[in-house]
Amino acid sequence: MNKIIDVINKRVSLRKYADREISKEHLDTIINSAMRAPTAGNMMLYTMLVIKDKDKKKKLSKTCDNQPFIANAPVVLVFLADMQRWFDYYDHCNVKGYCENHDLGYNGPQESDLLLAASDAIIAAQNAVIAAESLDIGSCYIGDIIENYEIHKEMLNLPDWAFPVAMLCLGYYPEEISRTPRSRFDREYIVFDEEYKRLSKEDFNNMYKNTEKKISKDNKFQAENFGQMMYARKTGSDFSKEMARSVKVALKNWDGRKL
């Protein structure tokens, strides 16, 4: 197995970090690797924020679903889906005047632009994850950066067309840490040839048979099976509702308004 594949397969989400700062050389390597990620039209529709300030990290640990380990990460990277930079550049280039002279509509970013920029940002984030892992620097994705849009907008000085879609906590692996990658679903339930396949009851029973064994009868969600537990814990949870609310607020800016 080559080194890159080995790094990918051994990677785990790290929430406890060695008590030392990430070197400038290593951080630069991670950032440069992220910037080499594939990007739509070579437009690089994302921005990376490097967070080292202790107060900001502490606040993020609270606004991102109260996860204390975020405050202890030596570096936090926030990845923004960013169309603001391009529209600032369009203003610089008098694109509005160009559109008026050529009978073209000049409209702001819309939902499709957000999705495309989010893809760019998350691809870059994953490049950062793999580069970090190769340097013995662990990482943990924080999807909760999507929550509390108004707070994060003010804290990070975000313009209307820059939305945080991913956050990474980074730090060196502690010497005593045990790396045990978590299992994944079998390929037959995730990868299909040519077209989508809806899973049958038998498929679901086989897919989750090992997971179901781990559900305690006296679990705090009073769930009878893994599906019920996961809905209560994730999809139907308070943080998920806040995430939905937050995204709806942000989406009001991505309405393709006439400029």
Score class of each variant (00 low, 15 high):
residue 6 D to C: 06
residue 9 N to Q: 15
residue 13 S to I: 11
residue 20 R to W: 07
residue 28 D to G: 06
residue 30 I to H: 09
residue 30 I to L: 12
residue 32 N to M: 10
residue 33 S to R: 12
residue 33 S to C: 15
residue 42 N to H: 06
residue 51 I to R: 02
residue 55 D to L: 08
residue 67 Q to A: 01
residue 78 V to F: 01
residue 78 V to E: 02
residue 79 F to E: 01
residue 81 A to L: 05
residue 81 A to H: 01
residue 82 D to M: 00
residue 85 R to W: 00
residue 86 W to I: 06
residue 88 D to K: 03
residue 90 Y to N: 03
residue 91 D to S: 00
residue 92 H to D: 07
residue 103 D to R: 05
residue 104 L to P: 01
residue 112 S to G: 09
residue 113 D to V: 02
residue 119 S to I: 14
residue 120 D to P: 11
residue 122 I to V: 14
residue 123 I to W: 03
residue 127 N to Y: 15
residue 132 A to C: 12
residue 133 E to G: 12
residue 134 S to M: 13
residue 135 L to T: 05
residue 136 D to W: 05
residue 141 Y to I: 14
residue 143 G to S: 11
residue 154 E to D: 15
residue 154 E to P: 02
residue 158 L to V: 04
residue 166 A to D: 01
residue 172 Y to G: 07
residue 174 P to W: 02
residue 175 E to A: 13
residue 178 S to I: 15
residue 181 P to S: 12
residue 187 R to H: 12
residue 192 F to C: 07
residue 194 E to M: 07
residue 198 R to D: 15
residue 200 S to K: 12
residue 204 F to K: 15
residue 208 Y to M: 11
residue 210 N to T: 09
residue 211 T to A: 11
residue 212 E to I: 04
residue 214 K to L: 15
residue 221 F to I: 11
residue 221 F to R: 00
residue 230 M to G: 01
residue 231 Y to I: 09
residue 238 D to Y: 04
residue 240 S to V: 00
residue 243 M to C: 10
residue 247 V to H: 05
residue 249 V to L: 13
residue 251 L to A: 08
residue 255 D to S: 13
residue 256 G to D: 12
